[in-house]
Design a protein around this nucleic acid. Structure first.
Lengths: 241, 241
DNA sequence: CGGCGTGTTTAGGCTCGCCTAACTTAGGGT
DNA sequence: ACCCTAAGTTAGGCGAGCCTAAACACGCCG
């Protein structure tokens, strides 16, 4: 009798995402926004997984509507995929902010912890943490925190390596993934919000001399290229009020 | 040549426990300490899993030295198993305390959240939370928090259902698993540390009249049997100092 | 002492994520 | 225009955890 009372094509209850799936979507999102597209091997490298595994997962995610996949031609997140990715990124960054701001974690150790917790924490927990922090808009590394409804304001920062000599800048952002670099930056007193000036640039891609506060320090070009900066006190454009 | 350079019998690197394994050990520990032993079907029910699955997992855990298993006769935790279980229980109870004490969770919702987080949180996170709480010894439901080196002080409390009429008692503990009961207890103002007196006990297993603070409330015998109490102000025995 | 029911275990199978090895495809170089 | 390589995909397999169905052991009761 009852033949097709409810067929599965109208999005069945939609199971909660597993941790690996969240990781794939997050990685693909980040690769897409960093380099426009995400290749199978990029994703494989980012997740420390064999390329064949990525192919398999991408097929699944495409079947579930999280991305569009043309074999041999790459994949692109759909709206649903992007929303899912941003949700995970929001959780990650709020967790990082909480660990650093409330629990006193050093900023080089928040990433790994958040990576685990982002898959386990409930929405309620995340929102309580956000509230305890006063709803921050950037995480401890300067990365913007997506809103709960899935939007991010990505600012286009310039690398300290390109910033003109002599002009003061505000340290704005650095990747959260390289713990050793973060320890080094903490050591020389460079964190988001710190004012920094390039005093001198040695030729042939040599070290830069920076003024941070009252101290002068020399850093290699690899470090400088990782540090993103902005113009100081970007005074609010006088529009509202 | 190199024949048995390192054989696997001397505890190989010992992989970190998976979430299901932690759940099994915790459940077995709790059943053992509540009723002396844990049967296959008890565990199956506690974990909402088929009995056959328990048999399989128990075999694995026995092979890894976490418990001794005599087929058809039941299983018993080894020292290693007990230590692992207590580690998970410690994490669970610290998480519950933190969620309730610092993040303002109502006590009926901390259990589920802690259940997820206990498998994801690092030791460092747990210890930072414990420190933020001032190293509590009991969780919000009155359950003792095992120490990091794997010992618990289980106090033998009496049920409020058995407590003599007219003698004041201190509410000491209640299970964290029944959210509806917890909401009800919060509602009538009964939480660990609250003073409570049984004013009257209706015959034939009828409701009890309690005095809590200045209010009198009637509770069913099922509720009373779940609430564990202790003698008030158990003044420290005058030994040290 | 034998049968029987409850509870446990075995047998066989499934999904999810991952792997390696073998293949196909796209697209640049000659 | 063709070939060759690098990248991507398919094929086949594995372990962890779970399931159902069928076989089996224990111990109680007649």
């Amino acid at each position: 009798m009852i033949v097709s009372a409810d067929r599965p094509s109208v999005t069945p209850p939609l199971p909660p995402l597993t941790a690996p799936v969240e990781d794939y979507l997050k990685a693909i999102y980040e690769l897409e926004s960093r380099q426009g597209s995400a290749t199978t091997s990029d994703v494989a490298e980012a997740l420390a997984v064999a390329p064949a595994s990525v192919t398999g997962m991408v097929r699944r995610l495409a079947a579930q509507g999280y991305l569009d996949h043309v074999p041999y031609r790459g994949a692109q997140l759909t709206d649903a995929g992007r929303r899912a990715a941003l949700r995970t990124i929001r959780r990650h960054r709020i967790l990082e902010s909480y660990l650093s701001g409330i629990l006193g974690y050093p900023w080089d150790r928040v990433h790994d912890e958040a990576e685990q917790l982002e898959h386990a924490a409930s929405d309620e927990l995340i929102e309580r943490m956000a509230a305890a922090l006063g709803f921050p808009t950037v995480d401890p590394h300067g990365a913007p925190i997506p809103t709960a409804d899935g939007t991010v304001e990505e600012r286009a920062h310039r690398s300290l390596a390109d910033w003109p000599t002599g002009e003061p800048a505000l340290m704005a952002r650095v990747s959260d993934k390289d713990a050793a670099l973060l320890r080094y930056l903490a050591d020389i007193g460079l964190q988001p919000g710190t004012e920094v000036t390039v005093l001198h640039r040695a030729p042939f891609d040599g070290p830069l001399t920076l003024r941070i506060g009252t101290a002068d320090v020399m850093v290699g070009p690899r470090v400088a290229s990782q540090v993103l900066v902005a113009a100081p006190t970007p005074l609010r454009p006088p529009d509202a009020c």
